[in-house]
Design a binder for these strands. Structure first.
Lengths: 156, 156
DNA sequence: AAGAATATTGATCATTCTGCCTTATATTGC
DNA sequence: GCAATATAAGGCAGAATGATCAATATTCTT
């Protein structure tokens, strides 16, 4: 079994519904045996279906209510060093290299507008960075969710 | 106590280190009483420090190994309807309205290049969308992390 | 269609955890 | 200094866990 099946999806959906739920409770709710749920969970973990707990921590609750996406134009030769420099900036939550143009998409959080300005400066100061373009994340049109993909897995 | 203190940060760091850890284990590891850890966790939960479990599910494990960021230029008047349309596309994980220009940043996942093409088409077909610009997320220069912000909270 | 491999179930067991309580002792804010 | 709050330490009943096992289903292969 290489790919996730409907039962896995149901278990994950149950986890989304209540993350602190016990295995026994889930088994009851899903009409599965405790053994099965436990085995599936172990299997999911082995297949790296779970990302680090970092992802569940709210930056806002930590005191960083402002999210921004910074498009960073770089000199490709210095990408390696840049990865290190960017990783040195705590407010950088993630940075992706994008296809096509020689630029990165960097997700940062900040305590406010002036803080964001300072962080942008730190990025600009990194060796290999040519210019940046900051966009504040104003409204969440679609708040993060994965459940539609899980629900789709239920049918076939 | 409005903001997160060092003890909260230590607890969260312990959670990152091992999410399935029990409260008793954490108390032992951190040199706190079980009571304290339990109370802190409850308090963190009450303050919405934890995001939904969705965030910890790996799209790759679900069969969507390709991530892309789609910049969507829109007619502002139709933002409301667009939120609904975009939410109707399962592969859209999140969508942010950006400051300044009238465009959105949409994070999508897909099973492959042709799938991404199809999804882009679905977005283009949404009422209010003028044009899109797709960027594939090639390499993760900085994989998602929040621990630097937590560790900073340990000192002062 | 038969046989093999794999999943699921139900069951047990000892150990551990939880949720909830109470009391005493810091620690902190005013 | 006093009051409010956080922490520690302990106890207790109920529940959950992890690790088994054997018996059935189910799925896959050939």
């Amino acid at each position: 079994m290489h790919t996730l099946d409907g039962t896995d999806a149901r278990i994950l959906l149950a986890m989304v519904e209540d993350p602190r739920q016990t295995v026994v409770a889930m088994a009851a709710k899903l009409g599965l045996s405790r053994n099965t749920v436990q085995a599936r969970m172990a299997s999911l973990e082995k297949r790296h279906a779970f990302l680090a707990f970092d992802h569940r921590i709210s930056p806002a609750a930590l005191g960083y209510p402002l999210t921004a996406f910074i498009s960073v134009h770089v000199q490709q030769q210095k990408l390696g060093a840049l990865a290190v420099s960017l990783a040195g900036i705590p407010e950088v939550l993630e940075a992706h290299g994008l296809s096509g143009r020689a630029d990165l998409l960097v997700r940062v959080v900040s305590t406010g507008a002036e803080d964001l300005f300072r962080i942008n400066g730190k990025i600009l100061a990194c060796d290999g960075v040519e210019r940046t373009e900051t966009s504040l994340a104003m409204n969440e049109l679609v708040p993060f969710r994965l459940t539609p993909l899980l629900e789709r897995r239920l049918r076939p």
